[in-house]
Every structure is written in C-alpha cells, then in structure tokens.
Design a protein around this nucleic acid. Structure first.
Length: 467
RNA sequence: GGCGACGUCGCCAAGUGGUAAGGCAGAGGUCUGCAAAACCUUUAUCAUGGGUUCGAAUCCCAUCGUCGCCUCCA
C-alpha cells in the first residue's frame, strides 16, 4: 500500500508518487527571523518532522530543506528600533530557532538556505521572468504580472476578479494590476541593499523560496510544506514565479498544517497572541507538544490549552507505562499469554503503518501504540519476565521513535541517589513487615515529595522517578 | 463581500456509504494494611432541517455556529 498525502492543490488525498523512485525532495517554509519563535512555529516544524521521519521509516531517501527568511521589512524595522545591524539581528534569531528545534527533538534539515545567500539566483530568476514577459520593472522595483499567468489562483482557489471585489488593496498606480506582487524592492536609505540591473535593492518575500528551491533541489520538488496561512499569497506566488519561468509543475504535493489556536484565535507573531517555544519548554516537555500535535489532525486547527496539555501529559505517561520492567519475583507468563503479546506486536505494527500511510494519521498511530501498551501491561500482570516483555517494548520504542516521541523517563539505575533510595525502600520493607504503617507511609510520602514514586505489590516494592 | 476548512461522548479526537478507534476525565470492580500503578467492566448515533440510497457521521442542498485566508504571518 502506498502512502497517501492530502494535496492542497487538488483538495484530495493522493498516492505518493515521487519524481525519482525511492527519493523524495521536501521544502518547508521556515520562519522570518525577527523575533523569538512561538509554539505555532513549533507545531508546524513538528508536523513536517513527523512527515519526514515517517517517510524515512518507509524507506525513502529524504532531502529536506527548510529556509530562513533573513531579510524583510520587519527585520529591518526591528533592527532600526534597536539600533542594531539587521543581519546580526536575524543571525541571533536563527541561532535561537535552531536551538528551539533541537530542544523539540526535531531533526535538522538537510540544509537551511537563507534568502541573503541566494541573491544571485534571485536576480537571475527575475531577469528570466522579465525576459519572458512575466515581470516588469518600475522605478527600481520589479513586479510579477499576475494577469499574464493563466493559472494564477489555482492553489488557493481564487480568481483575480473575486479578490478585487472586497479586498483592501493599496492603490499603487505604478502597478499594472493591483495583485501584481514585488519580486524586487528598491532600497530605501539605511536599508540592506544589493546591486541589481534595476538599481540597488533587495528581494521580495516570495521570490526567495522559489530561488532557493531552484538552486538547491531543482525545478521540480515532491512536497512543499508550510502553514495554511501561507497558501495565499505566499505559495500561490511561488507557484506563479517558478512555473512561469520553468514551464514545469513546481511541487507535486502541497501540504499545509492547520493553525494553533490560543484563546480561540490563531497564535500569531504579528498580533502578539503567542507563547514562545522557550516559555513552553520551561513548563512542559517536548513530548507533550509532540503528543498534542500527533493526537490532532495536522490539517485541523489545534486547540492549545492547559487542559489539552495535561491530557497529553497523562497520555504520555500511559505510553511510558508499557516500558516499565517486569514485576518483582515473577517466573514467566504462559505460552498463551506470550502468544497474545506476539500477535499484539504484529497488529500494532500493521495498524501503525496503515494509520500513518493514510495522510499521517497521528491519532490512529497513537491508538495502535496504546493498544499494544495495554497488552504489554496485561502480560506483565500475568507474571512475564523482562525478557518476555522486551520484544514488545522494543516495538513501542521503535514506533514512538518514528513519531519522534522520546518517552524518556528518568530511570532507576542512572542517578547517584539510587543507592540511597534503594536503602530507604529496603528499610521501609522491613517496617512494613513489622506493620509499622505510620513510618512506612511517611517514607513513601516524603520520597514522593522528592519525585520518587513507590509502588507496592505482594512480591515487593518498586520505585521510579515521577515526571 | 469573496474563497476555503471545520462542527463526532464532559474534554482531546479517529473514522468519508454498511449499524461509531484511541487517550483524558467519570462510575463500579480486582489487587493492596492504606495508597499508587496496572488490569477488568461501563459511558455517544455523529450541529440542525431537508434530500439521494436497500443502507449515511460518511454524498447533495439549506440553516446555524466556529476558524483561517483575502495585509506580514508556521
């Protein structure tokens, strides 16, 4: 069975068919680096990280690019406000973002192109577009001629006529059509500038992505991703520019994630309705966000509330419960029970792949893991040994890993405190044998306050670090 | 005003023609000195109103509601 992907271009799920067998080229729109990134960026990055990890798991050789827009009006404005160099400002936020991604367990891209490093390519493209009649210079600016592009609007499902009707459009009489967009902007005093055939200036927003693609992965790519707020105008314009120049379909699949909702509204940099990734990670683990993203459809809006995060936290604990060791003093489970476990491993594998194949259904993939965890826990309760549990637990780790979940719990045997905790637990066991409940409960309570969870069973006491 | 997405159990949600996955929370139970964990049992007819069909959460139309885009935005 093939992987199915929902394609914004056709509004349908389609079988994934790559340009080259076994290889897949993915380009994802990264942030404009003028401020700290927020959880919405994290969500988007995670969605495509999951997509990428899964395609790798399915055996594809993935080339994955994510860009940085490092020259733009807002960067310049912010830099001027602070009296710093715009390039340095951008550089700082790029480093922050890379750190954010690492903290979120998001795999680094194969390459991170930057707008400022593509100026030559950009100028070349614009020249090509002018030559073909798709662009025209005015007073040092260069605009794309939307009316020349018959397909314009096909990604976002708009028509030029519809858009003029109610939209607020700046009346720029120099433009031939109100929807014509800038490929090149003439420099104003004090702004970063590059030499060009049209005078000093800098690239427009959309052209950089087209240029980076062309330069680093080619005229045609398999998947182009980003937030659904980029569909129009950004991706629409990318298509217009690239395809007008090359005459070939740009990306086969356009994949867009839904917006993160904070307080019933889109989390957004420009409105300030946001929580930075840094602040989020101060309170929650990366897994909590990843679980939340996985559990909701990546194309739907994701409700971001404390309650949802708490639910994710509990869900993760449940997944991790499957990884706990055998009960103390067990002699092994029956063949029948072990057979059920082995079958559950197969079923989980199958359900997992089926779910993920179907447009990266994370919720379904998690369900397959929960089902397996339940059977593991049943098996453990039936007296299975660590060895008998290990294959199933490895499967949980393997599949969680494909989703990018770490499921790391601080394990016994890794801390200097272990010996002391063991001693207290052993002391408490003696107290319990003498029915000294007051003292034994006090030890349990005080250890709990220190983050150590004790669990008694009739065959002894186990302990683990809480989260 | 235009375009698009969505509305499934208290909450997060999967499911796109054949009588509703999973997680959280809740209730009852097993185990336990108590507790915790784990396990077992249990909880919905799918916004509303029409229509198509032998049969619809799933297709069509209308209504209501939510969100996104149309200006920078993941």
């Amino acid at each position: 069975m093939a992987v199915k992907i929902y394609n914004t271009l056709t509004r349908k799920k389609e079988d994934l068919q790559t340009l080259e067998p076994g290889k897949i080229k993915i380009y994802v729109c990264g942030p404009t680096v003028y401020s700290k990134a927020h959880v919405g960026h994290a969500m988007s990055a995670m969605v495509f990280d999951i997509l990428r990890r899964y395609l790798e798991y399915r055996g594809y050789d993935v080339r994955y690019l994510m860009n940085f827009t490092d020259v733009d009006d807002k960067i310049i404005q912010r830099a001027n406000e602070r009296g710093v160099d715009p390039f340095e400002l951008a550089e700082g936020y790029i480093r922050d973002y890379e750190q954010n991604l690492a903290d979120l367990n998001i795999k680094p891209a194969s390459f991170n192109p930057r707008a400022t490093q593509e100026i030559g390519q950009i100028i070349e493209m614009i020249e090509g577009l002018i030559e073909k009649g798709y662009a025209y210079p005015v007073d040092g600016d260069v605009y794309f001629r939307v009316e020349k592009d018959d397909d314009y609007g096909r990604l976002s499902g708009r028509k030029l006529d519809d858009m003029q009707a109610g939209a607020r459009i700046d009346v720029d009489t120099r433009k031939e059509h109100p929807m014509d967009f800038a490929l090149w902007k003439a420099a104003r005093p004090g702004e970063p500038e590059w030499e060009s055939p049209w005078g000093k200036g800098r690239p427009g927003w959309h052209i950089e992505c087209s240029a980076m693609n062309l330069h680093h992965i080619g005229e045609q790519i398999d998947i182009h991703g980003g937030g659904n707020d980029l569909i129009f105008p950004h991706h629409e314009n990318e298509i217009a520019q690239t395809e007008s120049l090359t005459g070939k379909p740009f990306a086969t699949y356009w994949v867009h994630n839904g917006m993160l909702q904070l307080g019933g509204e889109k989390m957004s940099k420009s409105t300030g309705n946001l929580i930075t990734i840094e602040d989020f990670l101060a309170d929650y683990s990366a897994d909590v966000l990843r679980f939340t993203v996985l559990n909701s459809g990546y194309r739907s809006p994701l409700t971001f509330t404390k309650e949802v995060l708490a639910q994710s936290q509990k869900g993760l604990e449940r997944l991790a419960s499957g990884l706990r060791p055998a009960l103390p003093g067990v002699k092994g489970a029956s063949l029948e029970v072990l057979d059920t476990l082995a079958k559950a491993v197969e079923t989980a594998q199958e359900n997992f792949v089926n779910a993920m194949d179907d447009d990266f259904n994370g919720s379904g993939a998690l369900a397959s893991l929960f089902d397996l965890v339940r059977v593991i826990n049943q098996t453990r309760s039936s007296g299975a040994t660590d060895e008998e549990l290990s294959a199933a637990q490895d499967k949980v780790r393997e599949l969680s890993g494909v989703l990018g979940l770490m499921l790391v719990t601080e394990e016994a045997g890794t801390s200097k405190a272990d010996a002391f905790i063991d001693m207290l637990v052993s002391l408490r066991s003696s107290l319990r044998q003498d029915k000294q409940w007051a003292y034994s409960d006090r030890i349990r309570d005080e250890l709990l306050a220190l983050g150590v969870i004790l669990e008694d069973s009739k065959d002894g006491t186990t302990w683990r670090w809480g989260s």
